[in-house]
């Protein structure tokens, strides 16, 4: 490419670069900076990761909730996406509409809706009691169960969409070929369809897990202070205990753990391929 032309292109992307620098890179650097300077310069904040049992517990909760949420969401998302790929055009349009519908509702409204459904006098408990299935109301909310229900509900479209888009690229003829060569429906699925839908499964898993790690509103509302995950604790540190050093340290750690999980996955799969960049 001609050198002067290249300069023109650099100028054309300059506004975007500037925007990133001012609104994204600069605050990020500041977060990192505070984490090693407040209250005193050094790695004191980070030593809490090792020393403080509370932070251990919060991290363990976060990881446990994220892993369970991711597992359930990806399996459920796979089933929904598989169904969408098999049904007729009309049903598919409706299913897609229902999947996307939750995107258009505020996350707050969805969390509160789950609280209404799951609380002690909520629809589910009263319903089960009136049916005589239970004597005492079940504890469905303000615990990990409630948090996971709410998170799975929120994350489901994020799993369905990449899996479904991958499935639309799988030739139905390959499954027919497997059947014709003597494979039972299950074997044809397990040996042909499932391996071919792996890229969609992996991108859905990454997407859901990374989103879950930093999730705030749903765990905060459905956990009701009982299930404290990292992002909620960051908020508490920032706004209530005013320990900015600790808050920024946790935020930075969260960011690193996202990078770490991506790096781990990248060891086994070609991420560029999974996310369609190649």
């Amino acid at each position: 490419m001609h050198a002067s032309l290249r300069r023109v292109y650099w100028w054309l992307i300059a506004p975007a670069v500037l925007l990133m620098l001012v609104f994204y890179i600069y605050p990020l650097i500041q977060v990192l900076w505070i984490s090693v300077t407040d209250p005193v310069p050094g790695l004191g904040n980070y030593s809490e990761l090792i020393d403080r049992a509370l932070i251990h517990r919060i991290w363990m909760t976060t990881i446990r909730v994220c892993v369970i949420t991711t597992a359930i969401t990806v399996v459920a998302g796979y089933i929904v996406a598989y169904t969408m790929a098999q049904v007729g055009e009309r049903q598919r349009t409706w299913m897609m509409f229902c999947v996307l519908l939750t995107f258009w509702l505020s996350v707050l409204i969805r969390a509160f809706a789950w609280v209404m459904l799951l609380r002690t006098q909520g629809l589910i408990n009263t319903g089960l009691q009136e049916l005589g299935l239970i004597d005492q109301p079940l504890r469905l909310v303000r615990n990990e169960f409630g948090v996971i229900v709410g998170m799975v509900h929120f994350m489901l479209p994020l799993a369905v969409l990449p899996i479904y888009s991958n499935m639309t690229g799988i030739q139905e003829r390959l499954v027919s070929a497997a059947r014709g060569l003597g494979a039972s429906p299950w074997v044809a699925f397990k040996d042909v369809y499932l391996p071919l839908s792996k890229p969609g499964l992996i991108s859905a898993t990454i997407l859901v897990f990374v989103f879950s790690l930093g999730f705030f509103i749903t765990p905060a509302l459905l956990g009701g202070g009982k299930v404290v995950m990292i992002s909620e604790y960051i908020q508490v540190s920032f706004e209530e205990t005013l320990r900015w050093g600790q808050a920024t340290m946790l935020a930075s750690t969260l960011l690193f753990s996202v990078f770490l999980s991506l790096a781990l996955v990248a060891r086994f799969v070609d991420l560029k391929k999974v996310f369609g960049a190649r």
């Binding site: 003829r173 027919s176 059947r179």
Partner: peptide, 10 residues
């Protein structure tokens, strides 16, 4: 199809 034992070239 899997019980017919036919070869098929698609």
């Amino acid at each position: 199809p899997d019980k017919r034992n036919f070869g098929m070239v698609f």
